[in-house]
Amino acid sequence: MELSEGIIVMASISIVELKPGVKLSKEVYTPLGGMLFRKGTVLLPRELDILRAFMVQYVEVDTGEVESKRTAKPAVDKSSLSEQSLSDEAGANKYSTFHEEYDKLISFVKSAYQSALAAELPIYELRNQLEATIGQIKDYNPLTFAPRSMNKYDYIYHNSVLCALSSYLLAKWSGLQQKDWMQAAFAGLFHDIGNIKIDSAILYKPTSLSAAEIEEIRKHTAYGYQILKNVRAVNEGVRLAALQHHEKVDGSGYPLRLDGSKIHIYAKIVGITDIFHAMTLNRVYQKAQSPYLVLEQIHTEAFGKLDPTLVRIFIQKATAIHHGTMVRLSNGQVGEIVFTDSNHPTRPLVSVGGEIVNLTQQRQLHIEEVLSSN
C-alpha cells in the first residue's frame, strides 16, 4: 500500500543533541522575542552556532519523515544547472542596468547643476532619467551600493542622486502616499542645488572653514529655494526641503531654527538621507565612513535632532535584508552577516572563519566596510 502523504514526526530536542541537517518544525525566537529562524529552516553548523550564541536550550525539529513515491524528491536534472547559470547572469545584468541608469542620472544632474544659473533646469529630462533609475531600484540598497567610479570633486552630484533614491525609499517605507514618493526623490535630488552659487574655493576647501566661510556655506539652503521657486514640475515641499534640510526638530538647525512641527516631511526625510550619504561618500576633506557606524550616529542624532520615527524606519529597513552580506570588521577580519536582531540592527551576528562574532556583545568591534551582498 502506497502512502499518499508524508508522515512527519516532530520532537523537542536539546541543542547539545542537535546534528547538522535537521529541519525546524516550529519557529525559533530570541529571548527578546525577535524571530531567529523560520519553520522549515535546515540547521547547518552556522545555524547551530547562532542558536548557541543566543543560548537557546531546545528547538522543535522533524525527527523522521516517510515520503510516498509521489512526494519523493526527483533526481537532480543537470540541465537545471545551466538554467541557474542563466538566472545568475540575468541578475548580474539587472544590477549592471541599475549602474548604467545611475551613471546616466549623474551626467544629467551634473549638466543641469552647471547650467542652472544661466538657464532653466531641464526638469522633464531629469524626471525621465530619475524615473528610469527608480525603475531599477530593487537593485539598490543604501548600505551596499557604491558608485562604480567617483571623482571626489563630483561628490555633490553623487550625494544628490543617492539622496534622491534613498529619500524615495524612505518616503515609501514610512507610509507616505505614492504621489509623495517621486516628490521626495526630487527633494533629495535638488536639496543641495544652492551649492552652485557657493564659491568653489570654499565648497572644495580641504582644510577647516573660517566662521565667515561657514556662514557662506549655510546660504546654500536659501539659494536652493530661490532656484527652485519657479520650477513648476516640483511642489512646494521640494522647495522647502532645499531650504529646511539642515533644520533640527529641537530648533537648533539652520537657517530659520524651526522646530519639528514646522519642518516639512520631505525636509525631515532628506535631512536623514543627506547625513547618511554625506558621511559614507569620499569627499575632498573627509574619507568615507562605515555605513553601520554612520547609522549608529544617526540613531544618536534621533534623540532631539532628527525625526525619531523616520530614523527608526530607515535603519531597520536598510539593515533588514543583509543576511549573506560579506563585510570587513574593524579588526580586519572578513565575515558574513548571518543574523540581524531588530533591537540592534547595526550590530548583527557575523560568521568569521566558522565562529560567530556577536557585535552587540563585542562593542569594541564594528562593521568597517560592506564588501559584497548576496
Rank of each mutant, 00 (worst) to 15 (best):
348 P>K: 00
228 L>T: 03
42 V>D: 09
230 N>M: 06
41 T>I: 00
105 L>M: 14
132 A>N: 13
327 V>H: 03
26 K>A: 12
300 T>I: 10
301 E>R: 12
256 L>N: 15
201 A>Q: 12
32 L>A: 14
321 I>K: 11
8 I>V: 14
321 I>A: 03
351 S>H: 07
27 E>W: 02
88 D>F: 01
242 A>N: 04
62 D>E: 15
360 T>Y: 01
172 K>H: 06
34 G>P: 01
271 G>N: 12
114 Q>G: 12
10 M>S: 05
260 G>Q: 14
174 S>Q: 10
34 G>S: 15
58 Y>H: 12
345 P>C: 01
89 E>P: 03
338 V>Q: 10
234 V>Q: 04
171 A>Y: 05
165 L>C: 06
336 E>Y: 04
95 Y>V: 06
259 D>W: 07
241 A>G: 10
43 L>P: 00
353 G>L: 12
295 L>C: 13
34 G>R: 08
370 V>Q: 10
243 L>Y: 14
239 R>E: 06
343 N>W: 10
276 F>C: 13
245 H>Q: 13
14 S>Q: 11
32 L>R: 15
302 A>G: 15
20 P>F: 01
134 I>Q: 03
222 A>H: 02
275 I>S: 02
294 V>F: 10
135 G>W: 03
123 I>C: 03
48 L>Y: 08
212 A>S: 15
142 P>G: 10
252 S>V: 01
302 A>D: 05
182 M>Y: 05
72 A>T: 11
129 Q>R: 15
252 S>F: 00
28 V>S: 00
288 A>H: 02
115 S>W: 05
9 V>H: 09
264 H>N: 15
131 E>R: 08
273 T>R: 00
148 R>Y: 09
140 Y>R: 01
349 L>W: 04
242 A>F: 06
147 P>G: 12
70 R>H: 11
